[in-house]
């Protein structure tokens, strides 16, 4: 896998939500590593803790959510041990983040110029004029035409795609080492989505930053990521580099996900798309044993009793399954 220096190492992260109706283990013992310049895809169905994991890295989990265990080692230091003030200085400077909803992620009452230069001014020791110049550069960089005019526009005067570009400009404003993209293209039209992905890839190449790419869309992962972690109910079930996971999926869940992606071959042959049976379990009442067992065609008594460990099945290929997919089936 990666030979470069480790940038971020998340170890056994646990973020639980303490609600009136019980405890939801949104992130339950997640570990992964991002090297400098690596793009890691975190993939899974909605509601399986991907976003909470990313917010935990930023330490922006709102009550009743709470990080109750684990370590988040960023550049050799545990972010969970930082004071709020130290953490604030890392946010937006060393780790940038973009969110799913471009329509609501920008403050409606300030111009976008104001909102981007604000991010620059808070982390860099420069004056207002300088910040404005830098903002216009950034707007240029993310492909917004007429940046001088756009500088004074409000979010409601821009399209969703443009707003997401503004969000990216904001996240890039201090040249972060890590960019977290939390379903950043999900809400966009397909063509706009492609443009934004292209832009992020381009920026990644230019700056060499690492990206934690969170999505439920496997096609995007195939397009963007170097390695991929598949999550299910707050746990990683399969983790390897992108080629391995796509060519040789071992967990039944990953296999099911990959099989349910429509492909041109399937369209031509009119083969019915297989779907994973059942639905994501109720977070308040997780099934005993492997959380995937009610939906798994190969589940056995053991699967219904104990949660399997995440084990290295092959070289650099971690799988949490007692009955991994046998044949090396080509799925994509």
């Amino acid at each position: 896998m990666y030979k470069t220096e480790v940038l971020l190492e998340v170890k056994d992260l646990k973020t639980y939500f303490f609600t009136d109706d019980g405890v939801v283990k949104a992130v339950d013992g997640v570990s992964f590593t991002i090297h400098k310049g690596e793009v890691l895809g975190l993939v899974g169905e909605s509601g399986c803790g991907k976003s909470v994991a990313s917010l935990s890295i930023m330490r922006l989990v709102d009550a009743p959510g709470k990080i109750i265990g684990g370590e988040i080692i960023f550049k050799g230091e545990d972010l969970l041990k930082k004071t709020p003030e130290e953490m604030r200085k890392i946010r937006g400077a060393e780790i940038g983040m973009i969110f799913q909803e471009p329509m609501t992620s920008l403050n409606p009452v300030y111009t976008i110029g104001n909102q981007i230069s604000e991010a620059i001014l808070v982390h860099q020791d420069i004056g207002g004029e300088e910040a404005k110049k830098r903002t216009i550069e950034l707007l240029n960089l993310v492909g917004i035409p007429e940046p001088e005019r756009r500088f004074n526009q409000y979010p409601h005067e821009m399209s969703g795609g443009m707003r997401q570009r503004v969000m990216i400009a904001m996240a890039m404003s201090s040249n972060p080492d890590l960019l977290i993209s939390d379903e950043a293209t999900t809400a966009l039209d397909v063509t706009i989505q492609a443009q934004i992905l292209e832009l992020m890839k381009d920026l990644q190449k230019k700056t060499g930053m690492a990206i934690l790419f969170i999505t439920h869309d496997l096609a995007i992962i195939a397009e963007m990521a170097d390695s991929v972690a598949v999550t299910y109910t707050g746990k990683i079930v399969e983790y390897s580099d992108v080629r391995t996971v796509f060519k040789n999926p071992k967990h039944q869940y990953t296999y099911g996900l990959l099989m349910s992606v429509p492909s041109l071959v399937a369209v031509e042959t009119k083969v019915e798309l297989p779907a994973i049976e059942g639905m994501v379990p109720n977070p308040y009442h997780m099934p005993q044993g492997c959380h995937f067992n009610p939906r798994c065609p190969f589940a056995t008594e053991t699967c219904r009793k104990e949660m399997p460990e995440l084990k290295e099945l092959e070289q650099q290929h971690l799988v949490r399954c007692l009955h991994p997919v046998q044949a090396s089936k080509e799925v994509v």
Binding site: M58, L60, D62, P84, R88, K89, I90, R91, G92, A93, G96, M97, F99, E101, T104, S105, L106, N107, P108, Y110, E118, A119, V122, H123, M167, M170, A171
Partner: peptide
């Protein structure tokens, strides 16, 4: 509970700016 406050915090603004400005 609006998304743009999360954005403001993710930018690394001080809590003061997040509350009073945004």
């Amino acid at each position: 509970h609006q998304d743009y406050l999360r954005t403001a915090r993710a930018k690394g603004l001080t809590e003061r700016t997040v509350i009073y400005k945004h």
